[in-house]
Amino acid sequence: MKTKKKKMSLMRKRMVAGYLFILPWLVGFIIFYVRSLFMTAQFSLSTMTMDAQNGGYVLDFVGLENFRYAFFEHGSFKQTLTSSIGNMLIDVPLITFFSLFMAMLLNKKFPGRAAVRAIFFLPVILGSGAIVDAMELSAQMMQGGVSGQVAETTASASSAIAFDIDYLISMFMNLGLPASVLDYITAAVSRINDIISMSGVQIVLFIAALQSIPGSMYEVAKIEGATGYETFWKVTFPMVMPHIITNVVYTIVDSFEESAVLELADTVTFGQFNYGLGSVFSLVSTVVTCVILVVVVGFIQKRTFYYN
């Protein structure tokens, strides 16, 4: 036994230790995710019919029929996919830089910093799960049934002091501005709100990243006579680079999760009970997102400085 242990080189030991460290996740991934990927792939290659008597489902293998239908016959899939990707690519740099900027502002010392940080954390809480559900439901009730779901804006702006955008729009309309320009401006303005509410997580991540930069680096930079601008590009930016990657990944995933393509997949799967087609949609969009992630992350990673 002892001789066997001695034979194990340090490299090998570290290899085994590495596997031990990731073991819990590996087991979970194989049980839950590999299986689900396999099942999704299976669904995408077949049509599924519910078996009402036995409470299960029956799969009929149809080959690539679902893929053919999705790409060549389905009315809106390709458009939705491309527009979702387009939105994603527009959002990512905007959100990343906005949140880095805000994080740097919030990282400075000023009175009431704790309160302001708490405020900036609110979008993380407000924008997820239960509260959004409750608000949407109440908006539906307000409008009378599901048909009123179009008025999504009421959910977030139903406050007593909400700003009346319609009034402004009609005012500009009366001024004679072309409708397309107005549309663009209103879209941009409403995106600002979106961008703020979408960058809550990123701001918190960046604050943590900024906190982890050792203060001595700034001292050195100061002693060497670097200006604030130089300090940002030569110290802050390289040091937060790894976290920019995290943020870019999160932003891409987040905007993918809320994209129209997934909504489409969801309605096709659970609204029309077409599991085959729904699986194709989610599979294709997942693969596309993964490719985008790999390309973008690879691009940034090349320019990233790691400590070792």
């Binding site: 996740w25 991934f29 839950f32 995710y33 689900s36 990927l37 999704t40 990944v249 995933v253 993918f256 999760e257 997934l262 997949a265 969801d266 799967t269 659970f270 699986s279 989610s282 599979l283 969009s285 997942t286 997102t289 993964c290 992630l293 790999v294």
Partner: peptide, 12 residues
């Protein structure tokens, strides 16, 4: 791990 982040929740 990245696949796990990206995968839409309704597929699992």
């Amino acid at each position: 791990v990245v696949v796990m982040i990206v995968i839409p929740s309704h597929t699992i």
